[in-house]
Design a protein around this nucleic acid. Structure first.
Length: 186
DNA sequence: TGCGCGATTCTC
DNA sequence: AGAATCGCGCAT
């Protein structure tokens, strides 16, 4: 089976493109015990730029958001509601605040539960993808396609996805209705 | 130094 | 609908 670890270059692109194209990829984690676990990414959300009123970076560079200004492929983990961690992957170019929130993987729905499943906490914050955490593209041209996967006229593997409003950002004014949540269509 | 809140989840 | 629970950002 062909399996390629995504390079940082993959993340140095338009955040909406990254959020959409992470669907169907595999999130992989080397646990502290050394065991490697993985699951297919099924749901993402994009947080994009200075003018996104839903983004943590809407207030600019702060101690917390500094990581969102870092180089693409950086891991951003924060604690929410004092008890859940959320995993983001930093996108675009350095000094531009953007990231993709991993909202769900196969069998695990919800960003807090994703981090619990993968044993992700803030010790990974500001680290680079690669050692303890990485993403793989496991397109296998010889395996039968799932119902949510198809090929375009050039034979490229594509994934059917839905575009919806982001969750939990009602405070975000004009940004709250942006369709920047992506999930694999069932 | 203090205060209010949140890119959530679970229970009632 | 309400609770749990705490680091961060901003006001004092």
């Amino acid at each position: 089976m062909r399996s390629t670890k995504l390079s940082h270059n993959f993340f140095a692109k338009n955040t909406l493109w990254v959020a959409k194209n992470l669907l169907g990829k595999y999130l992989c984690r080397r646990l502290p015990s050394g065991k490697v676990i993985d699951a297919m990414i099924t749901e993402t959300e994009a947080y994009l730029g200075f003018n996104d009123k839903a983004s943590h970076a809407r207030k600019g560079r702060t101690k917390r958001t500094e990581v969102m200004f870092g180089p693409p492929g950086t891991i951003y983990v924060y604690l929410i509601y004092g008890m859940y961690h959320c995993l983001n992957l930093v996108t675009e170019k350095e000094n531009y605040p953007a990231a993709v929130l991993i909202r769900g993987v196969a069998g695990v729905n919800g960003p807090g539960k994703v981090c619990r499943h993968f044993q992700i906490d803030r010790s990974l914050n500001n680290q680079k993808l690669g050692q303890g955490l990485w993403v793989e593209d496991r397109r296998n041209k010889k395996s039968p396609l799932r119902p949510d996967v198809y090929r375009d006229y050039e034979g490229q593997v594509k994934i059917k996805y839905k575009k919806l409003k982001r969750v939990g950002v009602d405070y975000a004014g004009e940004s709250k209705n942006r369709p920047w949540r992506f999930l694999i269509a069932d």
